[in-house]
Computed example of a mutant assay.
Amino acid sequence: MTEGEKDPKEVAVLLLKATMLPDGEVFPRFDQPKYTPADYTRMACHILFRCQRCGTCCTTGDPIRLRPEDAAQLAKHLKIPLNRALKKYTIPDPKKPGVLDFKHILPCKFYDRLAGGCKIYAARPWSCRIFPFLGVYGSSDQVVVNPSCPGSVETMEILTRAMEEVQREQEGYSPSTEEIRRSKEHLRRVLDEL
């Protein structure tokens, strides 16, 4: 394991604990988002994921959706006014009122073929940040892995093996509610760091 990589078994332990109790039992306040076990699995996958820079996400994503905060971040990153960024780079999503899409896709206008990467990586939209572990957080009950992304396939294999190993090693172990809450909070911070 190289510096910066996470130990799959440590991530599996976090995931195992985080999925032992529903969020409602751990976060009784109404202002806390409620996530499903699949959501926590996605969060764990993001910890382990290593982009292999194949470009699949940048060359096949259609549409590439933007939230209002994504458009604002793009404008700030490009050092242009928001209205100019909206006019130059976005269109309204015809299927989702209030949602924006990038104008230029297939490949994404910000994909650099020569460098094999995104020119706006630090300001990439949420839809790009959560790729390739797709789903609607808080409602989806399964993790959808994009099979054309070699990094996602590898991540799921690594996490699955680590989960199986941890489950065998910790059979009969019952963490406290506090340990479960801390594991959930740790994984939730992953979303903020994407």
Rank of each mutant, 00 (worst) to 15 (best):
Phe110Gln: 02
Val166Leu: 06
Val153Asn: 07
Cys149Ala: 05
Pro94Ile: 02
His186Glu: 15
Val153Tyr: 06
Pro81Ala: 07
Tyr121Trp: 10
Val145Pro: 03
Thr90Gln: 05
Pro147Phe: 02
Ala123His: 08
Asp101Gly: 00
Ile91Ala: 13
Pro97His: 09
Leu106Tyr: 01
Leu82Thr: 02
Tyr173Lys: 07
His104Asp: 12
Ser183Lys: 04
Gly116Gln: 07
Leu74Val: 05
Leu82Asp: 03
Pro147Thr: 11
Glu179Asp: 14
Gly135Ala: 09
Pro150Gln: 08
Met163Gly: 05
Val99Asn: 01
Thr90His: 07
Pro107Val: 08
Leu86Pro: 03
Ala71Glu: 09
Ser148Asn: 14
Lys88Val: 14
Pro81Arg: 12
Tyr111Gln: 01
Lys103Gly: 01
Arg129Tyr: 09
Lys76Tyr: 07
Tyr89Cys: 02
Ile158Pro: 05
Ala115Cys: 00
Cys118Leu: 04
Thr90Ile: 05
Leu159Asp: 12
Val144Trp: 10
Asp93Tyr: 11
Lys95Met: 08
Gly98Ala: 03
Pro94Thr: 04
Lys96Pro: 00
Gln73Ile: 00
Val166His: 07
His77Phe: 15
Ala85Ile: 03
Arg84Trp: 04
Gln170Gly: 08
Val153Glu: 10
Thr155Ile: 11
Leu100Cys: 00
Arg124Gly: 06
Phe133Lys: 04
Arg181Trp: 10
Thr90Val: 09
Leu106Gly: 00
Arg67Asn: 12
Arg129Asn: 08
Val136Ala: 11
Cys118Ala: 04
Gln167Ile: 12
His186Tyr: 12
Trp126Val: 09
Gly98Thr: 04
Asp93Leu: 10
Phe131Cys: 09
Tyr137Ile: 14
Leu100Ala: 02
